[in-house]
Nucleic acid binder design. Sequence first.
RNA 1: GGCGAGGUAGCUCAGCUGGUUAGAGCGCAGCAUUCAUAAUGCUGAGGUCGAGUGUUCAAGUCACUCUCUCGCUACCA
Length: 710
Amino acid sequence: MTEPKRYLVTAALPYANGPLHIGHLAGAYLSADAYVRWLRLMGKDVVFVCGSDEHGAAITIRAKKEGIAPREIIDKYDKIFRETFKKIGVSFDIFHRTSSELHHETSQEFFRDLLKKGEFTVQESEQYYDEEANQFLADRYIIGTCPNCENPEAYGDQCENCGNSLSPTELKNPRSTLSGNSPILKKTSHWYLALDKHEAWLKEWIDKGEVNGEQLHDASRWKNHVLGQCRSWLEGGLQPRSMTRDLEWGVDVPQELEGSDGKKLYVWLDAPIGYISATKQWAKDAGKDWEPYWKDKDTQLVHFIGKDNIVFHCIIFPAILKAHGDYILPKNVPANQFMNLEGRKISTSKNWAVWVHEYVQEFEGKEDELRYNMFKNMPESRDSEFTWKNYQETNNNELVNNLANFINRVVVLTNKYYGGEIPKFDENIDFTASRSDSETSFHETELLDLHDRLLEVVTALSEYDFRTGLNELMSISSSGNQLLQFNEPWAKQKTEPERVKAVMNAAIQIVGALSVVCRPFLPFTSDKMREMLNLPAIKDNGELATLLENLAEGKPVIEAGHQIGKPVHLFTRIADDVIEQQIEKLMSSAPVDASTNYEPVKETTTFDDFMKMDLRTGVILEAEKMKKADKLLVLKVDLGFETRTVVSGIAKFFKPEEIIGKRVTVLANLAPRKLRGVESQGMILMAEDADGKLGFVSPDEGFGGGFVVK
RNA sequence: GGCGAGGUAGCUCAGCUGGUUAGAGCGCAGCAUUCAUAAUGCUGAGGUCGAGUGUUCAAGUCACUCUCUCGCUACCA
């Protein structure tokens, strides 16, 4: 495979329904950013696109709940995204929005095109429609009389009395749960992408990186978990997938199409196309042509995403791109796994997270410190963990003690001995080399060694191995510390000043190289170093490539005679109390937020309705786990007058042997229902806290089974 | 239950198509050192590679069984 002419790098579009946390950074954005910054330093033609994902049901539902327009929500988070990304140094060439006109046009155009190419099948059906609520009704929103058992409260998908599954049109006297009115049947059609048609080539593409015998990428370079998940999907057989929805908020299905009324594009069709519309907008702003970036075979397309997005980026979107015909396929999709926080999963709803917009505020000027820790613990091939303690350790022990300290030593000594002027030296003087500890080494081999070590960082980055790249970076700094330690300029300055000049010159070359190669990971530090060294700011335009060429030819990074600036502390220690404060904040904010998350009180009911329920005390006699079900326990409950079999979804929280003899509250007159083939004759009442944890509602000691609860 | 990904030194993780005494960073111990933000360098201790069985001249690396963690999925009236 030849060297690509240009690169297009995408990072997952963040969903505009909440701010960014460190999991987002570790999942996609920082690796993408390092990759792009590296490409720029190598002088490559690269475009880095992203944007807010602003459609979909979750935003609609939330807007309704809060009584505001979806627009308010997406504007709020789009703004936060932009500020946060900028502050943490994620260097998009464009951050676009899927609510933009250009995006709507682009997705519709795409849709039309796929339609024209016969990629869609239209499946028409009659669906209930609530004229008052002005929308089609999902099955669960319809209640009616069951055709089998005459239960008047059967749902559109299932009757809970007889357990039969139903379709809404089978119900007698259907009514809408939204308005109570009887809905009307209305024809509706949806467009299905014939994914099954693409199964064969997708298989070949995933397995071998080939399409029609043409080698497009090296499949062995894709991550295991990415390949595994794709194969799992392909094994299951691909089904046609609906690409339209009955929704109010989203990209309209092209209006000229029959039946497009009230229909929107499925967000998962619209979102990846967001990469394309973003590229278009970028091209427009930059006066470039967007098409080669998406359509030229010499372009390398890379999607950076979290593991939750794998199938969409590796199966569905490629199918769409291929179906369209003109578009290239991604060269790699280096999806990361998840990052946990202090031993628990990051959770937005439980407020168990480190919010990036808060971090950049509270730790202003310490953006690279977070970036460093993220790269260090990047969940490249399995879930990883962020802890504040570890953040402190990596900062103090690695950034301060190793990197910043090395640079500081060199700058301080150079200022002290030479007034800040990089010394000229005699090429024939030997000094101890950093890595080999041998006396035969001299200046030139030190430069070549530096060249090789930079190359190792470069190689790691090209293989999406950011963790290794970071380690290589730090080992360059370590070798600088060795160089000083072995040669002891502070001791030799008086006795062998000429030799010290050679050593210090070599040391400053390492610092100069670090100022360039640290940039993909630590962009702010890179800038600070350039300033301290009194070197021109990096324009992200091939500086690293030039540096490598020079070193290969034995040319120094910085010429002797150059005047550097005064020492500045690049990183400073983070004290224990700062870390303790953060941990405290995390611990205290989590439960507080959970408690504000109470379920709203339901609509007022009547005493009569309440009295319809027959609640009884009960005692669990037997309990066993339901086979082939993770959550279900089959219980025998003593109700005094009889023993009931009750199936309950509590297996995650209770072991069968532990709950025998437990007093419980039972809804005794609930219609029986079959669950996994076992008839459940009642329901055990459970309390559920904000974390979803369950607890029994138990009568006091002394109550046996069968007594009335009222 | 089905499928996928993992379980490697105290911690965070590398170990590609099976091949000499299993690696890195951090932490820890000892020694050296002071130019530097009590920083640095050297040396060292630490692992029956989740458990078991098998294939092989040879297995962390392949196969099977089991077990634990995470994700998707089904089942929580």
